[in-house]
Design a protein around this nucleic acid. Sequence first.
RNA 1: GUGGAUAUAGCUCAGCUGGUCAGAGCGCUACGUUGACAUCGUAGAAGUCAGUGGUUCGAAUCCACUUAUCCACACCA
Length: 883
Amino acid sequence: MENLEKTYDPAKAEDRWYNYWMENNYFAPAEDPEGEMDTFSIVMPPPNITGQLHMGHALDNTLQDILTRWKRMHGYRALWLPGTDHASIATEVKVVDKLKSEGIEKDEVGREGFLEKAWEWKEEYGDQITNQLKKLGSSCDWSRERFTMDEGCSEAVKEVFIKLYEKELIYQGDYIVNWCPSCHTTLSDIEVEHEEKEGKFYHIKYPYKDREGFITVATTRPETMLGDTAIAVHPSDERYKDLIGEKVILPLMDREIEIIADEYVDSEFGTGMVKVTPAHDPNDFEIGRRHDLEVIKVIDEDANMSENAGKYAGLDRYECRKKVIEDLTELGLLIKTEDHVHNVGECYRCDTVIEPLVSKQWFVKMKPLAEPAIEAVKDGTIKFVPERFSKVYMNWMENIRDWCISRQLWWGHRIPVWYCNNCGEVIVAREEPDECPSCQSSNLKQDEDVLDTWFSSALWPFSTLGWPESTDDLRSFYPTDVLVTGRDIIFFWVARMIFMGLEFMDQEPFTDVYIHGLIRDSQGRKMSKSLGNGIDPLEIVEKYGADALRFTLITGNTPGNDMRFREERLEASRNFANKIWNASRFILMNMEDFELDQVEENDLKPTLADRWIESRLNTVANEIDEALENYNFGEMAGSLYDFIWNEFCDWYIELIKARLYQDEDPDAKLTAQYYGLTVLEKILRLLHPVMPFITEEIWQKLPGTDGSIMNSDWPEKTESDTDIVSEEKMQLIMNVIKSIRNIRNEMKVNPGKRIKALLSAGSKKAEILEEGREYIENLARIKNLTIEGENIDKPDKVSTAIVNEVEVILPLKGMIDLDKELKRLEKEIEDVEFEINRAKGKLNNEGFVNKAPEHLVEAEKKKLQEYKQKKEKLIQRLGELKD
RNA sequence: GUGGAUAUAGCUCAGCUGGUCAGAGCGCUACGUUGACAUCGUAGAAGUCAGUGGUUCGAAUCCACUUAUCCACACCA
């Protein structure tokens, strides 16, 4: 048998085992030709091909891997399907930058040339992030890896577009959209982030046309006034009622515009008069539609003023603002300028201030799709964990607006629409048509735009399984079991998968949505590139090992809540791994004369400690199952940590040492070896989903194991293994040991010295103590332990304690400090009195006695009895000492 | 404005459906190299569970309000 190194070195083990799993194709779901197995499936939220692995990915994937490995060990046909997202804008930006660094402009290479470059880029960097995921130990089935722009996914996108178009759920129209002047594309509403900014509130005079005087409007964006086509007031605003229908002259442009009435206006705000610029403000656009106003576009796609802006044409929108204010001031039309805080929409990719523009775009009509999606969550078909996120989802879904899906980019799924240059026919088709079905012209042109990246991500749970083909995978694994992701993409992605899944599969894409929190830095700040406070998971893996990282990420992790990441916690996890390593090392060191397959049931003589650890193990296995069923990853980690460190290492290993280090009783030794080994082996299995590498490394070295631990069976719960009696017995024995250790420590007894001890207890407990005699002697370092009945004569110069009605007596002749001992006893009496009063208080309370459950009242009575007895003994002891 | 989260030991956080729940890790104190482990062991100190009120026989746990911090959504030009 080989001996283990003194410390565990993850670097030596991790890649080796990952390769082993890959080579043996262990990540693929089990074969199941008869279709008898239960399935479990997760689709991985596809990371962007531009992405670098960050802590969010690490957490997300750790959680998914834990669930997958756990279910796989439970005998499920488990599939965790990985893949990547083409990330339209992000990738395009990267490729443009790369070309620029080579001195090439995007337009120079043209669409085809650019796409070629983009694919090259994808080939080169696209699998970087998936390789990083492998370092974490992710057990996803790479043979099924998908990409949102691969052939199958692209087919699915086309299919969905066409079907929705045919159902009139996709339409084209001139609407106001969010335009990013830097990325040069439209954005959906949720791709716009609002940030509070200090701005100015300009009050401007607009002179009447047909009478003396002027009206005053207030605006934060004076440059847009060049495109004003009306002034709006609230219809019931008494101040302005008479002005409705009146004309004013738009300054600087000398255009006549009318004062109109619209409910939208808030009379309380500003002057109660709103300048209406339908071309550059979403609300104004709506007003414009209601009143059939002219739409004058004064700002172009580069955020420069257009020719409609008269003499301001060509200016940047901010320069123009300055100029407009200057000119207004000169004309005496600027009344005042106030400071004003307002929200400004910015592009979520590049932070450029969004310019609302009117243009022709493709939209998805949301209402009909949203309804079933709302229903599915309402009726519990889909469950959010934690529950509160369903509110967030509902709120959004119920107020949803149509989804602008066209993007003025090249990298992405090109919209499958052709226009006839001859007759203007719009042709929606899977393949490029040869001629116009209406006029037979072959002068056709495909729509220049691509689809929003999230359009294809929305299909992910079924497009990756083969849809629109009816594949085996699709039948087996759809709907998936759970989606694990962060709360930031509930709208972008989760919501959209839900309505697309319901629409095209007639079935929800997943039953549970587990939302986890953010990993923050040690000060609680978000990790971000701009702050430079991000921590690279790969560096952590290198330093502490993937297992330690994984364990750290789930300890103390509660559903939906953020957590801070501090390096000290990694040390704790690494130490934990090392602890397991050394416990295993110990077990293996004691296996020299042991042959597992030679062990006969009859040779085994399990002791109290053996029964206890088995029972505890069984309980812990239960706890872990329960925790994982409820996505309580933190509890899982806690259970494992406590059990392995505090019970298995601190107690059980110590308890079996005596049997291992002797040769007189071969059966006793064999039994200790047997239980030590088998319990360890089960522990490794329970730990495997969280710490796959170290468990495999050790498991492979254990005698009697075969294949990979990841394919071993989960230690199933069995009623017979739970042995409450043994647990209670051990509890008593451990308490006695702790109590002796406590006294020794307080009395400064040399830790190594074996001393005498006397235990006085009732016959039932004395019997238990007798059973644990060896344990007490060895673990409390006692020689000649005496166990007697109650009310015995105590020797002089002793120190005592009372625990669970057992009196612990240590004759420490010449060792004890009388004063100290007296103080110790007095303090203990105080504590007991406090408990007595508490118990008495409860029992004197009629409400408690009458209304509380019987067993609680009984327990309280029993406690009181015990405390009273304890107090008596302590006082007696105190008296003896004082004599 | 609407909705939500958080507030528990010096620090970071657990505490699920109200009754040994006042806990863990780190840190701290005192001992310790006992044949797995100093990435360790044994023992210990430490909290009016943010505040106020309520429900209850009983509340860190449920309800209301208050305070503080944070987040999402919606925005008023």
